[in-house]
């Protein structure tokens, strides 16, 4: 099935360089050139292959290769087929996001999917009608699903990860600490440091007496 599609794409779109690939297990995919993505999608949709629904746009970050991969998973309800279409984009940096042409004009369902991909991986979809973040707050910075993402320290004057709420090393599951090794199981060992600036309430008069 995939070889048929590859032939079709290469015949229809000049310079798409479609090629199949498969891992050691699982599904096979078709990889195309990023510049030709829109034409490829258009051809696949308006043909006898009839990919009439876009299932999902799923981005994957490969920092070692300085690339971001965007997977367009297409499906056809009429032919009962499914296809993973891949493009690879240069990873860019904060000022220059990776760019690919939006497919919203082909499938309206791409609208939210591309917004999510932009939100999570910082892929700029050219020609998207409304490219805003969708899951994170609109004024969030950074792209969380990139592998080198570090969460911002403050958001609207609130500390994002306050130290006293984070998992301290000694409470982490499987941590090799003395209370886990059985030296002492006293409740004292489970004590957590109070948050910075926290003052214990003064004992009231009644409790003193």
């Amino acid at each position: 099935m995939h070889s048929e599609w590859v032939q079709f794409i290469n015949g229809k779109v000049n310079g798409a360089n479609a090629a199949t690939g498969v891992g050691e297990a699982g599904d096979s995919w078709i990889k195309v050139e990023a510049e030709k993505l829109f034409e490829v999608c258009e051809a696949l949709k308006n043909s006898s292959h009839d990919f009439n629904a876009l299932q999902v746009v799923s981005g994957v970050d490969y920092p070692a290769e300085q690339q971001i991969e965007v997977n367009y998973i297409l499906a056809s309800y009429t032919n009962n087929t499914e296809l993973i279409l891949k493009v690879r984009l240069p990873r860019g940096d904060e000022n220059k996001l990776p760019k690919v042409k939006s497919v919203v004009s082909l499938w309206s369902g791409a609208n939210f999917q591309e917004r999510e991909c932009y939100d999570m991986l910082g892929v700029h979809f050219e020609g998207h009608p409304d490219l805003r973040r969708v899951l994170c707050p609109y004024d969030w910075t950074g792209y969380p699903l990139r592998k080198d993402y570090v969460v911002q320290e403050k958001y609207l004057d609130m500390v994002v990860n306050p130290a006293h709420k984070m998992n301290a090393e000694e409470r982490r599951f499987g941590a090799e600490h003395e209370y886990i090794q059985g030296a002492s199981n006293s409740i004292e060992n489970y004590k957590v440091d109070p948050p910075p600036g926290y003052k214990a309430p003064a004992a009231s008069e009644e409790s003193k007496s």
């Binding site: 891992g23 050691e24 297990a25 699982g26 299932q55 999902v56 799923s58 994957v60 499914e82 993973i84």
Partner: peptide, 26 residues
């Protein structure tokens, strides 16, 4: 340990199709 590769699998849930796209690096 999953072998290298990827998979997209859809199942029919009460609210519609749920798909998992898993990319494994081994």
């Amino acid at each position: 340990k999953l072998p290298k590769g990827e998979i997209f699998l859809r199942t029919e849930c009460p609210r519609g199709e749920l798909g998992y796209h898993i990319v494994s690096d081994g």
